[in-house]
Computed example of a mutant assay.
Amino acid sequence: MVTLPTHANGVDLTLEELLIYRGPASRNNPFRGLPRTSQRAGQNLSTLKGRGMEFDEVRRYQSGDDVRTIDWRVTARTGHAHTKLFREERERPVMLFVDLGQRMRTGSALMLQSVQAAHLAALIGWQSIAAGERLGGIICCEGAHREHKPRARRQGIAPLLDSLVHIHRQTGSDQEEYLDQGVGRLRHLAHPGGVIPVISDGLGLLPQHLDTLADLGRHSDIRLFQITDPLAQRLSALPDRITVPVWHQGRLSQMDHHDRRLWQQQFASQLHDFEQGCHTRGLRLSRVDAGRPLTEQLDSIWKPIH
């Protein structure tokens, strides 16, 4: 029997249920132990994004040095040519983007997709600070938006968890363009060379949003995490006579056979468009099931489906 995580009821969100992921974050932590000078693929985080080098010191110019790195101010002051030395850039700030909009307040099994999205954000947050990375994020829904610049240790994780709980408690509004604002702010706040985990059901991300993420992916490590619900698989196996109760966007509704067919067709079309949009833009996409505890999916969370 599948059981809810500790302190969770699957619908509401509390700080206590997000704190428990500090322990599981030590398992399969993708932020730990990665050499910054070699390329890694698949489940592991990229090590070659971003600016790559940062200033270290100035020394006398030597034959063979790149003339583009000459420090002209020091050269003018000393009367001898000096060149700048650089070292590999070590910083890899993590900037979470979490969509907690009303379309995420849907669940047919263990928990709402929005609750699982918050759990995943907490897990990645704990993983990043455990590896010594700075953590920030943008959490948004209709009518509510919070953002945090990357900060180290407790100063990074504590306000992020608080914002997840606060935003999740917000009621719906008519501000459908909230993702436009959120993705726009992500472009402004994201640091080159950082890691940007994007957590959503994916179906609210329009082509222009994917274009922005692909553009950010030129200098950052973009990871899309699609929070899924097992409803589609379960509906296809039901007899026609069955009516299904579904909690959707804050209310309980019933789906008969006709409603199920229409919903499945629309869902399949949206899912195909989203997958193709990610694939054509080179965006790596992973899936996390809201019908299973996150701790049962730790081995597959960072593995892309294509």
Rank of each mutant, 00 (worst) to 15 (best):
G107V: 07
R90H: 05
R281K: 03
D256I: 01
D162Q: 09
L100N: 12
S286G: 15
G172S: 07
I139Q: 01
W302H: 14
I305N: 01
I199C: 03
L298S: 02
H168F: 10
D215L: 12
G194N: 10
L85V: 15
C140Q: 07
D221T: 11
A81K: 15
K49E: 11
D65N: 12
L285V: 00
Q254G: 03
V195C: 13
L252N: 13
A117P: 12
G217I: 12
Q276E: 12
R73T: 11
A131W: 13
I222Q: 14
A117V: 05
E142T: 13
L285H: 06
E57N: 01
A76H: 06
H82Q: 10
N29H: 11
G137Q: 00
Q266S: 02
A117Q: 12
V288Y: 04
L298I: 01
R40Y: 14
F267D: 11
F31P: 01
G194H: 13
A131Y: 08
V98M: 01
A131D: 04
A237V: 11
L45P: 08
G42T: 15
L252W: 14
T37C: 09
L179Y: 15
C278V: 06
G42V: 15
A122N: 00
R92P: 14
L203P: 15
P150V: 14
H168A: 07
H168D: 01
L206C: 02
R27V: 14
R22C: 08
G156M: 04
A81E: 13
V246L: 14
D259W: 00
G204F: 14
Q254A: 04
D65G: 11
L160Q: 03
T75W: 07
T78R: 06
S286W: 13
H188A: 11
L34M: 15
V246C: 08
Q155T: 07
R223K: 06
I199T: 09
Q266Y: 03
M255T: 00
M104C: 11
V198Y: 06
F86G: 01
S269Y: 09
L262D: 03
I138K: 03
D174T: 07
R22N: 10
L34Q: 15
G202I: 01
L224D: 08
E17H: 09
L123P: 10
Q270P: 09
Q270L: 04
L161A: 14
E275A: 08
V198M: 04
E147M: 11
R234E: 09
Q270D: 06
H148T: 12
L271H: 01
Q233H: 04
R260H: 07
R292I: 04
Q127Y: 13
Q233M: 14
Q254F: 01
H219V: 04
